[in-house]
Amino acid sequence: MHINITKYYYGDIPDAGNNNTHESTGHSTTSSWPLWEVFIRSKQGLDHKHAGSLHAADAAMAIENARDVYTRRQEGISIWVVESQYIHASNPDDAEMFYEPASDKVYRHPTFYDLPDEVKHM
């Protein structure tokens, strides 16, 4: 069975009785705006951390949307956005060869020597 769903956007809902199978093309849909990844720095000196993703038409709008969505409770003082399509991710299928070989190499952790007391934040 084919179900035809017409999506109406704010302000575009037609008058009663006129609700035929009108295709609401020509309106921008969420899916036509690219996805952006948002990174927020919570305070000076800390790294930007991945906060989530959102839709926006361009970079300027993505930063403003990020400001409205992710910093309204004082979560940040700086925002980075990058279009999700430009993020290259490792393949989950590679997990075994990528990550497991490190599990038995304890000598890579700096735990085999004593740190002088003067060295802090290690």
Binding site: L54, H55, N65, V69, R72
Partner: peptide
Amino acid sequence: ECCAHGPILEQDIAITN
């Protein structure tokens, strides 16, 4: 009145902010 009726989620939050 736009709350939950914005054109997309992100702008819905913007206008309600």
